[in-house]
């Protein structure tokens, strides 16, 4: 019989508790590896998950509500991951607004790569992590009232097991990443492997936002990076907020929170390795 464990993490400042058998906790470990330990000196968890075994099925509950049951433990992990992100993004409102963007930082401050899926956020994020920038997030960029971006360092996950611009050898040989996995059964009943890339340099503190890049990957286009007027950038960012506020509120919130000296750039790229960023103030 597997031992039941209870662990705590600080995810974007929210205390998250998970109770699960040791075997499931081991499967969860790569997903949670980048979040600080939350077991000391913190109050009652705001988000709690419990994984239990009932007969031949696993069961996932959160804050007393049944979320998922499945014979496959990997599917329970996938359900927990999805629910964790949703609950954290909801819990941090209104202190932090979550933008669908990747965020990396150097000593000058933070750069966001904001855009819809397929725009190239994760590729750009990976390119700069390989250049020893610090990781904040590949999906949830949390903007505070003081113009800083708070870390939400979930593991990077590519849609494919291999990335055309970054070989596994390059990723692992760089010393910038550790690799993790979890297995699950997809909706067609086929076994799938989710590959997780864990950056080794993770920002531990909020960092001032210096630049927002609106990228577009286009294999047939010429490389270009041109300034964008603030209101145009805000218009686009407003549609990328991950919390349920209207466009009107989103625009004003972003305008008040985005630092006045933040620069906005539109990037078109076909080779991620050609992209350079100077975010010095």
């Amino acid at each position: 019989m597997s031992q039941i464990l209870n662990r705590h993490w600080l995810v974007a400042g929210e205390l998250v508790a998970i109770t699960a058998p040791e075997s499931m906790m081991q499967m969860l470990a790569p997903l949670l590896a980048l979040y600080p330990d939350g077991s000391t000196g913190t109050p009652t968890p705001s988000i709690a998950f419990s994984i239990t075994r009932q007969g031949d099925r696993w069961r996932l509950d959160s804050n007393g509500i049944a979320l998922w049951q499945d014979v496959d433990g990997g599917n329970i992990i996938a359900a927990l991951e999805l629910s964790l992100y949703r609950q954290v993004v909801a819990a941090i409102m209104p202190a932090l607004c979550s933008i669908h963007a990747a965020a990396v930082a150097n000593s000058d401050g933070t750069v966001l790569f904001a855009g819809i899926s397929g725009a190239g956020k994760s590729s750009l994020c990976t390119r700069f992590l390989l250049a020893k920038w610090h990781y904040l997030s590949d999906e949830f960029s949390l903007l505070a009232e003081d113009g800083t971006i708070h870390p939400f360092p979930r593991p990077l996950q590519w849609e494919c097991l291999t990335h055309p611009a970054f070989t596994h050898e390059k990723m692992l040989g760089s010393g910038c990443f550790t690799r993790g996995f979890y297995q699950f059964i997809d909706q067609q009943g086929a076994p799938r492997t989710s590959q997780l890339w864990l950056p080794n340099l993770v920002a531990q503190r909020p960092s001032r936002l210096r630049m927002v890049v609106l990228p577009r990957y286009d294999p047939n286009a010429q490389h270009s990076m041109v300034p964008v007027v603030r209101s145009v950038a805000i218009s686009e960012l407003a549609t990328l907020l991950q919390q349920p506020i209207g466009l009107s509120d989103a625009i004003q919130t972003l305008h008040h929170r985005l630092p006045r000296d933040c620069r906005f750039m539109r990037l078109t790229f076909r080779d991620v390795h050609q992209v350079t960023i100077d975010c010095a103030p």
């Binding site: 603030r230 209101s231 145009v232 218009s235 407003a238 549609t239 466009l247 009107s248 004003q252 305008h255």
Partner: peptide
């Protein structure tokens, strides 16, 4: 809907029907 961005003389027009924004 017209949202004026204080301090920068720019306005964002929200077209709720088309779910889009235009900057002026």
């Amino acid at each position: 809907e017209l949202e004026e961005l204080e301090g920068i003389d720019e306005v964002v027009v929200i077209d709720g029907e088309g779910q889009r924004c235009v900057s002026l």
